[in-house]
């Protein structure tokens, strides 16, 4: 390490350093290339309807992934977001149909369930000393189980207020509006607030953060609580589109969310990651699926492609670290 002061390259403005640009914006470049290829490959890609479709599809993944970004930046992982999304939507449906609560109370109740699940995750991790992988794996099972218990395996109708989230605001689908608001809020939290800055510190080096007086445990609980809240929002978006909460909704979405965050340039060892990156990561996943659908590629092959994309993105991440540290 002792040589590094002299070897840190000074940023050159003379020539465009495409290597650095590629390493830092790999996901964005990939997305643009992907879109250009799809525009050429199929006339169906660049249509208003298809783009709106992409927007709607990306909303669920991205909102989940925003919450996941907090957790990953803070050095954890949350495997339960898909199940918590389903549980929150189902609870909201139950509040409305079985408990007879007003629609807006059912909506807020659904969000509260997600928040609560997140707090439990965070407390199990921070105070119970369970690794976040294990704590949220347990929550995945519990939340999915509770969803089935509440619903008895059948869909429940959602309140109009929830369905509104799946509808339109003028010409714009509500999920896209929610997506934009969620992105702004998440980005604001991560960049501007004490909490957000603390997440980077905790994920980068929890002990250094603690010795600097940051309340590490409380930060971890808050981070998981936020992930739960964003998961609940994603679950309600999904339910709103179908006018019903489905017991198997969002199954496996946690992996999409993690993939989006990682493609977006976050490090699974914590301390690095951005909301804009995560958003691009989510778009990459959704556009690939959309494009492969338009090109009539079977969903089996789609999984293969998605897997390769994740490997490629993480490979780029490793490369970036290497160029930075040498």
């Amino acid at each position: 390490m002792s040589t590094t002061t002299t070897i840190t390259p000074t940023p050159t403005r003379r020539s465009f350093d495409y290597k650095t640009f590629l390493a830092n914006n790999g996901a964005l470049v990939g997305l643009v290339v992907l879109c250009i290829a799809l525009v050429i490959a199929t006339p169906d890609f660049l249509t208003g309807q298809n783009l709106l479709n992409i927007g709607i599809q990306v909303s669920t993944v991205a909102v989940l992934a925003f919450g996941m970004t907090f957790v990953i930046v803070a050095g954890g992982i949350d495997l339960s977001v898909g199940a918590v999304a389903a549980l929150s939507a189902m609870a909201s449906g139950w509040f409305f149909v079985s408990a007879g609560l007003p629609g807006w109370v059912a909506l807020l109740g659904g969000l509260a369930v997600g928040l609560l699940a997140g707090i439990v995750n965070g407390a199990a991790n921070a105070y119970g000393k369970l690794p976040s992988f294990i704590a949220t794996l347990a929550m995945l099972s519990v939340a999915r189980g509770l969803t089935l218990v509440i619903s008895d395996g059948r869909p429940i109708k959602t309140a109009a207020e929830v369905s509104f989230l799946g509808g339109n605001l003028g010409p714009v689908p509500m999920p896209i509006v929610v997506l934009v608001v969620a992105a702004l809020v998440a980005s604001f939290i991560l960049n501007r607030t004490v909490l957000g800055r603390s997440m980077y510190a905790v994920g980068g080096n929890a002990e250094a953060a603690r010795l600097s007086g940051l309340p590490v445990k409380r930060i971890i609980v808050t981070v998981f609580a936020l992930a739960g809240l964003f998961a609940a929002l994603a679950g309600l978006l999904l339910a709103g589109r179908l006018d019903s909460a489905q017991p198997q909704a969002a199954a496996g979405y946690e992996l999409d969310a993690i993939a989006a965050v990682v493609i977006g340039g976050a490090s699974l060892s914590g301390g690095l990651g951005k909301i804009s990156g995560t958003f691009i990561g989510a778009l990459v996943l959704v556009v690939i699926r959309n494009g492969l659908n338009l090109l009539n590629v079977s969903s089996f092959w789609q999984q293969v492609v998605i897997g390769l994309v994740i490997a490629l993105a993480v490979g780029a991440d490793v490369l970036r670290r290497k160029t930075r540290n040498s």
Partner: peptide, 18 residues
């Protein structure tokens, strides 16, 4: 224990007063 190595000099200087 002292530093968050991936964070900036600025951030590291500011953790105690964040």
């Amino acid at each position: 224990q002292g530093l968050v190595l991936d964070a900036s000099v600025n951030d590291n200087l500011g953790y105690a007063t964040l």
